[in-house]
Amino acid sequence: FMTQLSLLLILLCVSGLVPRSAAFVFWTAWLKTDYYQSSNDTVSKSCECGVYGRNSEVAEFSGFVAVPKGDPTGCSPYTSYDRNSSQEWIALVKRGNCTFSEKINAAMHQGAAGVVVYNVDDTGNSTTYMSHPGTGDAIAIMIGNIQGTEIANSVKNGTVVHMSVHVGNPHGPLMDTYWLYFLSIAFFIVTAASIAYFVFISANRLYSMSRHRRTEKRLKSEAKKAIRRLEVITLKRGDELTTSDAMCAVCIESYKAGEVVTVLTCDHVFHKACIEPWLLERRTCPMCKCDILKALGVEEDVKDDMSTSSPPEVTVITVTGGDALYEVPLNEPMSHEPEQQQHRYDNRAFVEDSEAPRG
């Protein structure tokens, strides 16, 4: 149960963290840039130096690079690009002067296959995770200022530049190594705590069961001592028990001459073969629940809660000829006997251990 609870807690924690962390997971982009020089030489550069926009489709795109005429930020919806309309092209614009969404929508309206935004001056090759809502299915990435300025200047100087953009790797809290370490450590801590708790509960239950068995064994030993001190009688023809309608409350059978009966400390009589197994397990009179261990002064070695071993709450009924004479709930003293009789010490059952029982 604890293991299942721990797993549920882990799932709840992770399910709460994922939605919060999903917004911070971003994808990098691989850029392959080919510079076609006038001398027919081609210079190629590649790096994982781009970052897909937060609202961009994470997909590949390629084309010849075109820069805006005039304003390098390409903010105006009427911005024109020096490009070959028959070829796939990519808009290269500078960050600033307007929102990312405005410059991306302007370039996509002109037919660009994708938009590459390079950062502002004096930022080196650092990038940011740009947000551009309202750009539909546009594909946009950001690159650093140094790289973007170099490409833009090459295009302005007449160099043909072709760019291919490929999907890189995901990054963010759930992807970073430290976060995976944290989740792994948390999982192992919770698992170890669950196992430790399970071991503790199991050991405690085993100890309780072992103590209960030892207590039962001791009490049975004490009950055997007490049973040996009870008065045992062999019934004879003409005895009161054989001539009356009395019955053994355990087996509900009448007493007959020659049968051996046991007289308890409360003066209730039962067949010896019926009452001894009962007393070994319950140590109380079936009729009035008199505790024979207390009545006989036999000390218990261990005081323990024996509620699990108590006899079920039943009603003992003695009948004659189908008519009920009386019924005695075991959780109450008999109505026709005073309660103090449960602890009588002046009856014939108290004989010395050295005396042989009559019979």
Rank of each mutant, 00 (worst) to 15 (best):
I201W: 13
H343G: 07
S80P: 08
L206C: 07
E60H: 10
W179T: 14
T320D: 14
Q4I: 13
Y35F: 15
A249K: 01
V351Q: 14
M108F: 03
R205G: 01
F26K: 03
T79Q: 02
R218Y: 11
T177P: 06
T127A: 08
K236T: 10
N119L: 07
L9E: 09
V120R: 07
V250Q: 05
P173F: 02
M142L: 09
F182C: 12
D41V: 12
D301P: 06
M142G: 05
I195H: 01
V232M: 13
Q87K: 06
R229S: 11
S309G: 04
S221I: 11
C290N: 08
V67L: 04
T3D: 11
N347F: 10
L241Q: 02
K294D: 13
I185A: 13
T191C: 14
S244T: 15
N55I: 08
T315A: 11
L296Q: 05
I195F: 04
E253W: 00
E259N: 02
K156R: 12
Y129T: 04
L11P: 07
D323W: 08
A192T: 02
V351Y: 12
Y345P: 03
A66W: 04
V67T: 07
H171R: 15
V302H: 11
E299M: 09
A66V: 05
L280Y: 07
L330C: 06
K236Y: 09
A273G: 11
A203H: 14
K272N: 14
M142N: 09
A23M: 11
E102D: 05
L9P: 02
D267P: 07
V116Y: 00
A59E: 15
P312W: 06
P357G: 07
M108S: 06
E222Q: 09
Y181E: 14
Y78W: 11
A59S: 15
R213H: 04
S101Y: 00
H343Y: 10
N145D: 13
H212K: 13
